[in-house]
Write a protein that binds this DNA or RNA. Structure first.
Length: 313
DNA sequence: AATGCATCCAACCGCAAGCTG
DNA sequence: ACAGCTTGCGGTTGGATGCAT
């Protein structure tokens, strides 16, 4: 029996998302949280498959995403993590809050690969290009790299002399690197303080930065009451949104904080997922802002801890 | 200004893993 | 144990954009 397609492809839209579609998807998730992606397009009134909706949300619309190029520090972390995990982009991404696997993968392919090659390092094995053999390349392709080679890579990385933010070595402890999943999960227990193998530690074992050690310079913690909509943001007509990177509809709204600050909600399946404790004021106001060209009203909005739009209403 | 090439990245595709009945 | 379904992952593609000529 053949595999069922993820969705009925007939009549479904493909290609870049429009602002209108983004709005629908955002509105739907604001009101319902993330539930069954297969049902999302129907319920949200989108002519997309669920997969496409999920991808759009996770890679682009999620409010906790950082935009822009990876910093040197992040880049170095990616290299280090890639040396340990191979092309397991989602695992790597889990160490870099606000970054998606897709983003990291793209950055790897477009920037880091080149950089490493320029430096004479094989981006697959992290070994010097001159010493790698084809056989080694093949066998090591998926990150099954012996420790010896990781050490070689470590040395090479050390030679890169990338200026990295100093990390208090006293906060670093060795952990077993048997299975990265375990380590990573441990690191993820605290969303805001994820541990990592520190980019400037080139020992072959994975290390983690205890508790608060994870690049907090990259991910400033913002309390809801600290969120202040920037003034003099050019008002953007919602009708002029496109799906290009410079016009993230959420960026235009300028108020969504780190996802970590968003209350969890329980969906119908009793799964805890990202979402919002839906406050009617919140969602309906957002609807209002999204649906018409009211984005200019956002310019002077601040939010209190209960997420009311008090200055607006 | 026009053209061609290179680069970037959002989105797609197919497969695998995980879950449920 | 198995089948069917959903979700997640990684590789790839193609359109948009930037840059050089």
């Amino acid at each position: 029996m053949g595999r069922q397609p993820c969705c009925d492809k007939v009549g479904l839209k493909k290609g870049p998302w429009t602002a209108e579609e983004d709005k629908k998807l955002i509105n739907f998730i604001l009101n319902n949280g993330q539930c069954c992606w297969r049902a999302v397009p129907k319920l949200a009134g989108l002519l997309r498959c669920g997969k496409s909706c999920r991808l759009r949300w996770t890679n682009y619309l999620r409010p906790d995403l950082k935009r822009g190029l990876l910093s040197e520090y992040e880049e170095k972390m990616v290299i280090d993590l890639h040396a340990q995990l191979g092309n397991r982009w989602s695992k790597i991404a889990s160490h870099l809050p606000g970054r998606t696997d897709n983003e990291i993968k793209n950055h790897w392919n477009t920037h880091i690969k080149k950089k490493l090659k320029k430096m004479g390092i094989d981006p697959i094995t992290h070994k010097p290009l001159s010493t790698i053999t084809i056989d080694q390349t093949n066998t090591l392709e998926q990150g099954n790299r012996p420790i010896e080679e990781e050490k070689n890579q470590d040395i090479l990385l050390a030679q890169m002399d990338i200026e990295s933010s100093p990390i208090d070595q006293s906060t670093i402890t060795e952990i077993k690197s048997e299975d990265d999943d375990n380590n990573i999960n441990n690191n993820n227990n605290n969303n805001n303080t994820m541990g990592t193998n520190c980019a400037n530690n080139f020992d072959s074992t994975i290390v983690e930065v205890n508790n608060n050690g994870f690049c907090i310079d990259e991910v400033p913690l913002i309390e809801p009451h600290e969120i202040l909509v920037q003034e003099s943001t050019p008002s953007t007509s919602s009708s002029s949104f496109t799906s290009s990177s410079s016009s993230n509809i959420l960026e235009d709204l300028k108020f969504l904080s780190s996802f970590d600050e968003w209350p969890l909600m329980e969906n119908n399946n009793n799964n805890m997922g990202f979402g919002w404790e839906i406050n009617n004021d919140f969602s309906s106001t957002l609807d209002f802002l999204l649906e018409d060209d009211h984005s200019d009203m956002m310019n002077n909005v601040t939010f209190d801890e209960s997420w009311n739009f008090e200055q607006l209403l």
